[in-house]
Design a protein around this nucleic acid. Structure first.
Lengths: 108, 108
DNA sequence: TAGGAATATTCTTGTCAAGGAATATTTATA
DNA sequence: TATAAATATTCCTTGACAAGAATATTCCTA
């Protein structure tokens, strides 16, 4: 798993940007206005997100439309796969406990 | 979604620690030795992970056993849920494309 | 092609975090 | 109870990064 990805996500403004882009792709100006950020900051944050592979750009006249890029999110998802076993194991234990409550199984 | 969680993950040493803890809970000394980190750094990284809720401690004699904590990983998983729609939509389009390749469907 | 809109970049400053070194703290044991 | 083992904390230095301000760049349009 890539440290750069988490690094890009470790900023509340950038999390807000990503959250906003989930609704629809949009331009720098729109993002800046909706999140009440100034334009240069917005561009800089988008640059970080872009370099981390979380967004991509599509020029549209003299504006630049940013949109989410699925790959990096999928990478996080695959990374989480390793950890799902962990909490599923805990779920199994909960199932055991529920069985005990229902008298299906003796307590060890 | 919590910025602190991503912040804690945005460091390769800490990613390594988490990866190591996936195999089994273990002490500070074991972690430090396996990852070739010195002990103070290891303790400091574990502190960050602990404050982010990614690990928890269990004292065992004069050692402290650290283990992964499922909750924070599940929180990331729930956060990713919002973004799954995005790439699933793209997957649908891929399915369409595969249908086209197999002659099941005309190209629009 | 000049002007303006949209966006990106540079420069500076302040803050924060990582790493190293040293030391403090806690707990077990002789 | 003194000592050693395991771990945590503090202090210091350095590098990275966010924000603000100013400026540069790109691209459309009159």
């Amino acid at each position: 798993m890539n440290e750069q990805t988490f690094s890009a996500l470790a900023d509340s403004n950038r999390l807000d940007i990503i959250d906003l882009l989930l609704t629809q792709p949009q331009s720098v100006g729109e993002i800046a206005e909706k999140l009440e950020l100034n334009q240069p900051q917005t561009s800089k944050h988008l640059k970080v997100l872009n370099e981390a592979g979380l967004v991509e750009v599509q020029p549209e006249a003299n504006r630049r439309i940013y949109k989410l890029k699925a790959e990096s999110f999928q990478e996080i998802d695959r990374w989480l796969d390793s950890y799902r076993k962990m909490w599923e194991a805990r779920m199994d234990r909960l199932d055991d406990y529920l069985d005990v409550l229902q008298g299906k199984k003796p307590l060890n």
